[in-house]
Simulated assay, not measured.
Amino acid sequence: MADAEATAQALKRAIEANGLPVTVTPRVMDGTTLHQIVMGENNGLPPTPDQFKTDPSEWMIVNFQLDDMVSRADSPGQGEAAEQFARDLAVFVQRAAVAGKRVSAVMPMMTCDAPTGFTAANALIAALTMAANNSSLGIVGGIGSPLCDVDRDGKVTPGIDFEHLGADLRTPDAYLLNEQIQSIANAIAPKPAATK
């Protein structure tokens, strides 16, 4: 919780430095929580088209996670969990839109603990993309170059910022977290262009 609070405060400072006052609450929403929220209203059904009358006036930036952010994307159950997550997230975003809120999901940080394309982060990215295709979900917080490439045999080819992952090849350090925070801040509150 202390790490989440520190990250929330760093994000608040970064967005406010770009000129937009905000409130940031440190929370991570996993698949189980998301499913409970969605099923708790109207038996999990999305809003009807006639309900979409409100233009968004608030932003929600949410750090979503699958329940299992360690197992590979091709592990038993991980694909089904990601598909359920995507369906629930699309409904969550549609309901938020009816309430005048625009939802953006934080892009998960890629890891190097499984072959490229098969990490839990890849499963989450696929779920976020599916949800974005079926709703107004925005995705923010992507960082520059890939941290690594991992082949089928588990051979890791380091990328530019590879040294900023921990020994487990999945834990970003302060440098990467700051890069992601700046990316989110710049997406939410772009800095005005400098005048000459």
Rank of each mutant, 00 (worst) to 15 (best):
M1F: 08
L176E: 10
N186C: 05
F64R: 07
A4F: 09
D68A: 08
G40K: 07
D3K: 13
A82C: 10
T116L: 04
A4S: 13
G142P: 02
P47L: 11
D50N: 14
V22P: 00
K155L: 07
D113P: 09
M69N: 08
D30F: 02
N18W: 03
Q78H: 05
V91P: 04
M130L: 08
A96Y: 06
T48Y: 08
V24M: 03
T195Y: 03
K53S: 13
G154Y: 04
P76D: 13
V106M: 15
P21C: 06
R152S: 12
P56R: 02
H164A: 07
S104N: 10
N133S: 13
Q180Y: 05
V140F: 11
D68I: 06
L11N: 04
T195C: 12
A189W: 12
W59V: 06
I125W: 00
W59I: 11
T48C: 02
T195H: 14
G19F: 02
L147P: 00
H164N: 14
A17K: 09
R27H: 07
Q36R: 14
F162P: 00
A73N: 06
P115M: 09
G166H: 10
A131T: 06
V62A: 15
A4M: 12
G142M: 00
C112N: 01
V150N: 01
A14W: 06
T23I: 06
I188Y: 13
S71V: 06
A6Q: 13
I61C: 05
G77M: 10
L66I: 12
M60L: 14
Q78E: 10
I160S: 10
P108I: 12
L176Q: 09
R170T: 01
V156W: 01
D74C: 04
M60Q: 13
S145V: 05
M110K: 02
A127K: 05
R102A: 12
N18F: 00
I37Q: 07
D68L: 05
D74G: 05
